[in-house]
Design a binder for these strands. Structure first.
Length: 471
RNA sequence: GUCCCCAUCGUCUAGCCUGGCCUAGGACGCCGGCCUUUCAAGCCGGCAACACGGGUUCGAAUCCCGUUGGGGACACCA
């Protein structure tokens, strides 16, 4: 059994798209499951559109979602001699020929054919010219088979038959000496000994164009697998119109990479009714025959739910660590430095079932830093009123009488006071909540006090009384 | 236009290959209830789909054909 070798081959023409991440993910999962090799290859033969920043973005994105590669990143621009050598080999064996048609003329003829309702493909006029060494600029074309059929047994779609008479002679070497995509992929996939070419659905019709090139070069043809596309809510190909498509944008919005991975894999693949998978489970359970054949609509609500699930179930200390940079960005650098990792983890436990994203979590967690808390004006006006001041004062006095904080004791003490005063729990709880957190919504009061600690609880309560008396 | 792919709740999907267990299951969202010191979370319940038409068969979501609809590809882009 030969070793499985797969690759992810993005072109560096922008940010790393979530669709690309999903493609990479399926390849990676398969490689890891099969103890195979995962290759990262940058397809940058279009010098006008490729940028170094994009390569950086790809690497950064892959690292964030934890997709490590065993080989590469290879860059096609560093392999030019290879493509030229193999192109010339095809020329020498008579499988390729020089074409001196001008790009403008080609374009005009294509439009003309389209207008007549014909297939807009190359008419083959240079095919039998027998140009040995072109005097002016020329492109090298592959002489495609005109008869018979090309059969692809796709890993996902099954058997697909293409009639070879739909093929036209595609350019493999541009007049500037650069190879085109359909040629460089073949050379690279062959030379890198890729066993399974798994890519987006949009490449399906490229397959019958590439297979004859493998054959002409004498290379074995790999297996192919074509993943369905990701669509937006209007069922059109997912684009910026539908929201963020860059993987790193999701990091910035406070998504966990594990949640992104889980969601993206589940989009188009399933294992019975299971929704949540550890990475290990994904590797073990992944299989091509449970990859959906049809396109899937990207559903941000489900992603958000999944992210919330991961926030709730991940180890709090781990969440705390990834939260730190966000807290620093939120202007809490000093405050974060002063607290312990354990306390931060406590804080995460306090708010984790309320926060759906890390960005959310920053918002939930800010009241617990610093001695004082910023009061929401509306909340203070509504709950820190003069008529509640006496009860608050009494509460503080009783709390002060308790030398150390104990959730159970303080809660008991609180309830007793409520009972004696003949008021409802909420009548005292809301003012206390506002005094402690500045807001009307928070985790349970006594959990809040526990995280705040005895002194800060008392301090904020006294501040709240001042505010209440002043109103 | 030509070629290729696809088709189960609004969405992601199970089931399809190996017809009966499917009066079609799960998840997200939505609606209602419970819990409750607020907001969440949690729990319980509800709404909601086999695109259509023909076959094959005792029996079809499942097999076959057609129609319709959606998507993709037809570059000196990848």
């Amino acid at each position: 059994m030969t070793q499985v070798r797969v690759r992810f081959a993005p072109s560096p023409t922008g940010f790393l798209h979530i669709g690309g991440v999903r493609t990479a993910l399926f390849n990676w999962l398969f490689a890891r499951q099969q103890n195979g090799v995962f290759v990262l290859r940058i397809e940058d033969t279009d010098q006008s559109r490729s940028t170094d920043e994009s390569i950086q973005a790809i690497v950064e994105g892959m690292k964030w979602v934890g997709l490590d590669w065993d080989e590469g990143p290879y860059r096609q621009t560093e392999r030019m001699e290879l493509y030229r050598a193999y192109a010339m080999k095809l020329f020498e064996s008579g499988r390729a020929y020089w074409c001196v048609c001008k790009p403008e003329d080609l374009e005009a003829r294509r439009r003309e054919a389209e207008a007549k309702g014909l297939s807009p493909r190359y008419d083959g006029r240079c095919r039998n010219l027998g140009i040995a060494s072109p005097t002016s600029e020329a492109a090298l074309r592959f002489q495609a088979p005109q008869a018979g059929e090309t059969v692809v047994d796709d890993l996902i779609k099954g058997k697909i038959v293409f009639d070879n008479n739909i093929l036209d002679d595609l350019i493999i070497l541009r007049s500037n000496g650069y190879p085109t995509y359909n040629f460089s992929v073949v050379v690279d996939d062959a030379l890198m000994k890729i066993t399974h070419v798994v890519r987006g659905d949009d490449h399906l019709t490229n397959t019958p164009r590439q297979v004859p090139i493998f054959d002409a070069l004498g290379f074995p043809v790999p297996r192919f697998g074509h993943l369905p596309m990701i669509l937006g809510s209007d069922k059109a190909r997912l684009s910026k119109r539908h929201g963020a498509t860059s993987i790193m944008a999701y990091k910035e919005m406070g998504y966990l990479s594990e949640a992104m991975v889980n969601y993206l894999v589940r989009l188009g693949w399933s294992h019975g009714d299971q929704e949540i998978f550890t990475r290990q489970e994904l590797i073990e359970k992944f299989s091509w025959d449970h990859v959906q054949k049809s396109a899937a609509v990207f559903n941000p609500e489900k992603l958000l739910w999944m992210n919330a699930e991961y926030i709730k179930t991940s180890p709090p200390s781990q969440i705390a660590r990834t939260l730190i940079p966000l807290l620093e960005e939120a202007g809490l650098k000093e405050e974060v430095r002063r607290v312990s990792e354990e306390w931060l983890a406590q804080l995460v436990i306090l708010v984790k079932e309320r926060a759906k994203t890390l960005t959310d979590m920053v918002m939930w967690v800010t009241p617990y830093f610093g001695q004082t808390v910023a009061l929401d004006e509306e909340a203070a006006r509504k709950f820190l009123t003069a008529d509640i001041a006496p009860a608050l004062t009494k509460l503080v006095a009783r709390f002060e009488a308790l030398p150390t904080f104990s959730k159970q004791d303080w809660e008991e003490c609180f309830k007793k006071l409520v009972e004696e005063a003949g008021i409802k729990m909420g009548q005292l709880a809301q003012p206390v909540r506002v005094a402690l957190t500045g807001r009307t919504a928070s985790p349970g009061l006594f959990e809040v006090m526990e995280v705040l600690g005895r002194e800060r609880t008392l301090f904020r309560l006294r501040k709240g009384i001042e505010r209440a008396q002043a109103s």
